[in-house]
Amino acid sequence: MRGQVSRKTVFGFIGPAVIGLAVVGIAPLLYAVWTSLHFYNLTKLKRVEFIGLENYMTVLTDGVFWQAMGRTFFLLGTALPLQIALGLMIALVLHQPGLTLIKTLCRLSLVLPMATTYAVVGLLGQVMFNQKFGVVNQLLGGADINWIGDPENAFAMIIFWDVWQWTPFVALVLLAGLTMVPGEVEEAARLETKSKWTVLRYVQLPFLLPGLVAVLILRTADTLKLFDMVFTLTRGGPGSSTEFISLMIQRVGFRGFDQGLASAQAIILLIITIILAQIYIRVFYKEV
């Protein structure tokens, strides 16, 4: 019978990985839970003491946490629709027959932004969006826009880079969906109607939906994770205008030295992530 092996054999194969993951992945989380229940400040290590849920109460009633959350979801809410609209457009262009060579080139170019080191994206932002000698202002016809030093412009710049880096991902996911539409079905639909919109809405959309759900969940998770690019570009500033949730926790824990409070914030973030992961599993891994 397939799959019937002794427990010992199973453990021999999977044990090392599970133990490895438990040591580096789970033990630190338990430690974070412990820290979150204590007053734990890096500058006052003599005074570490148990304070129960006080840190959690502070997080939940504290405006800073919710502001950072709100900012994070505002970024998601502005960048994701742009990524989906542009991504769909790119996917539809690539899906049309013909022009193989330039389309292959285009597909390869799309891979580049996704793979780029986040920190390098941030550094590129520093150089290209510089007010005086940045190429962006030059391309805007010699504009004199202060991108990095102005709260709203800095936010727009972050949106730009997020869209630049992740629209290709959305495009390739949607393209994969488009290629799932059976050729005969698409052709038959095109003979029936001249409207591209009708074909998209009634023939292609059902095949795009799983990809769209995946994009929605993964982009949400990735925006909650977002740190490297913003840290190198604006450090969360000016003020706290681009301080998204992961940056805020990093600031509280390492620049504000309050590890207890930061851990409580991190645990709440972890709970949100677990819920997202559960949804993802329910939708995509029915067989597991």
Binding site: L218, A221, S246, S263, L270, T273
Partner: peptide, 16 residues
């Protein structure tokens, strides 16, 4: 899947 999604800061605090 949770690991694919969780923010590195969650692990960075205790790991530090």
């Amino acid at each position: 899947i949770t690991n694919r999604m969780v923010s590195p800061i969650v692990l960075a605090l205790p790991f530090f």
